[in-house]
Design a protein around this nucleic acid. Sequence first.
DNA 1: ATGAAAAATGTAATCGATTACATTTTTCAT
DNA 2: ATGAAAAATGTAATCGATTACATTTTTCAT
Lengths: 331, 331
Amino acid sequence: MKIKDIAEASGVSTATVSRVLSGKQNVRPEVKEKVLAVVKAMNYSPNRAARSLRSKTTSSIGLIVADIQNPFFASVCRAVEDVAQQHNYSVILCNSDENPDKEKQYLELMQDENAAGIILAPTTKLADNFQENLASNGPLVIIDRKVSNTNVDSVVINNNAAAKMLTHHMLEHGYQRIAGIFGARSVTGRERRDGFFSAFRDAGLTPDENLIIEVPAREDGGHAAMTGLLQLPNPPDAVITSSGLLAGGAFRAIRDKEVAVPHAIAFATFDESPWTPMTRPAITVVKQPTYAIGQTAGEMLFKRIANPQRPPRQVVLSCELIVRQSCGIHP
Amino acid sequence: MKIKDIAEASGVSTATVSRVLSGKQNVRPEVKEKVLAVVKAMNYSPNRAARSLRSKTTSSIGLIVADIQNPFFASVCRAVEDVAQQHNYSVILCNSDENPDKEKQYLELMQDENAAGIILAPTTKLADNFQENLASNGPLVIIDRKVSNTNVDSVVINNNAAAKMLTHHMLEHGYQRIAGIFGARSVTGRERRDGFFSAFRDAGLTPDENLIIEVPAREDGGHAAMTGLLQLPNPPDAVITSSGLLAGGAFRAIRDKEVAVPHAIAFATFDESPWTPMTRPAITVVKQPTYAIGQTAGEMLFKRIANPQRPPRQVVLSCELIVRQSCGIHP
DNA sequence: ATGAAAAATGTAATCGATTACATTTTTCAT
DNA sequence: ATGAAAAATGTAATCGATTACATTTTTCAT
């Protein structure tokens, strides 16, 4: 079943069938109707490889994230797929594992696949040293991490403000020896750290530098950092972690040592996770708008695909503070 | 940059270059070496659309799951993507939402995309009424749910045995009024239900039918079912839920009513979730080998792609009982 | 009614690989 | 050394759409 069959059955040329199907050129209404009827009757759908070969584009978009098992990315991915589906595009999923080599390999793969566009959560290395030419390779939207070059579409959150809000919440509840466990070597971690300091500054206070820890943003990193903090001669009376993975590890360390929350130590974190409302006390979190990030990125990508000349936009989304019981009940 | 350029630069024909690259036909070693050197020097990579158009296959596989936000599928997906990457294939991700129409649409999409193969977690409707011709459309591996027609590759777990093991564990701890919340209208839910009954039978007991509930396997279903159970004049002294989503809802209902676990009610479930080790008491679970399911399915798919004549296999993987504190500490 | 401009449609080239078939080269038994 | 068989290689067709360019038809001002 190919376009030639439809053309013959409709009594027009293949070019006209193609024009009807693409919808980009005028065709007389009666001809259009006839062709569409035949297409439907014969249950024809165009060969994507042929279309792609000739027109040098596909209806696939690439989504490159660190790890789909991270609920943050799963939610982003879900949103991207929903948007893609509405546009009749399919999404090719890639896990970079924060590994710049894998990331590069996948970016090349997308090139080979002729992807219509890419949504990328860049590795720290790429974000810090963003190549202008990457964006000129085709439609691209950056998510989650600010890149050094701002001349590219991106969707990020207001890390600094969100961290400040969360820290302020703790300070307001009377905690002052607040420890901070931040993801090391990432723009995101740095911004959240800055927000943390900024909240202290606003309160006329200075955090204890011994309680500020930067570790790789993985579960075991959070666990090790928290274990270390609890062993300090003068341990903190509260902790903030800068990601869901770090929080999981840190909270596990707290549970290992049977430290009472919030009486002995208050706890709060970035990222809503399936477990944060389940523990007792339930954990106070800053919830990132994960679905909205994916959705916005998807929509921006399709706008850029439709109009490559469109000036790049940076969208900053806000986080929500979900107050639960892990930081006490005052004031 | 196309094959013709490589052919000219290597002093051979395009056919020979193609043969070198596909590796499927003999080429004299010195010619092969020369061609590979030129390919490398010119950083050539073949146009996938052209290859796909002519050879009627691609290096993409489709993965159709209910929802990537479900950690079960996220883990399966991760495994599939890892295997695909090793074979230099990319994976197209689709969320069916348990909706047979969406599922059908995606299956057609995979056809249009000329996917080299499909890994499918079928909707209940499809699983119960499996079309033989689906499998003849190309390489296909079914996961998670047994399908009515066994003449297709599949990877499932031993639901019956796992449910029996979990129920037995509870009975052994002295609980007898055990409630069961099972996913409605799914083969998986039914098998787990059967295993539940089977454990009772082995113990010479009969479960109270009023405590057996079947609901749609979603968070709100679990919450509603558990809320109802707790309001019974003669409530259960233990509950088992048949999936992670149901468990989340059910446990939330238990927390809403401040019911003590395990003293007032014991709790255990299918599926390891991020929160199950985090609560106090931590939740006893049957852990499905999620990564292994995806990995096995991926490997089976590539074997079938390599050899379409291979007789179909059904692989059954075992679950692991992770005993924590939610079912008491006896015996 | 007429002719120029615009719209609709058709013809045939094209995208870049693979592969059927043809030809040349090599191998090997005699 | 010779000829048949096998291996290596080349030529050109092919996959099925889109699109540049050509042609035909329609519109519309006069």
